[in-house]
Amino acid sequence: MGARETVSSPLPSPDDLQARIQAERPYLLRYAALQLRDRDAAEDAVQETLLAALTGSSGFAGRSSLRTWLTGILKHKIVDHIRRSSREQAAPDPAEGDDADFDALFDRRGHWVDPPQAWENPEGALEQGRLRAVLEECLKGLPARTAQAFMMREHLGLDTPELCKALGVTPTHSWVLLYRARMALRLCLERNGFGR
């Protein structure tokens, strides 16, 4: 794999590639911070990613964009970091499993106080990129582990066993975290005028 092959579009020179990799640093840092919720951990994960990219740049075949390739490496580093920090943490806070927060949404019999209305063209907002900033803000408002569970499941695409391994929780607890994340994000998007 190390030999440089001549393809229709020649690969960039090593110096050029190195500069381009460094130029992606701010984006990668923002991406990692959103999921790790800890500036130092995000710095570490990005540093590891850049190091892996610079020492293994032969792995970059130019078939995907540089950003996509780097993000692919970073995703693994992010999950590694979450797994390590979960191991260091004490048992999960029991309050994480409590959905009392949503009690205000429902009456005593568990029916909607204010039934959700349909959203106006959510797909359109998604395509136009109008959703991203709001969703990022809403994610920052979640407890860290709840946000991590959501992003690992819905963004990174981990399944239940992988999620449980990363967070050090039982399947049931992972579902509670995801339920809380989804309910809170739905509500947060709506309160920020999404879908109107």
Partner: peptide, 26 residues
Amino acid sequence: RNASDQLRFLRRAARSLQEEDEHTAG
């Protein structure tokens, strides 16, 4: 029904949080 659609829409929304730069050859 609305809540259900919206909860499931969050998956597609979450996927969109990765930005592509302009050179997406793939």
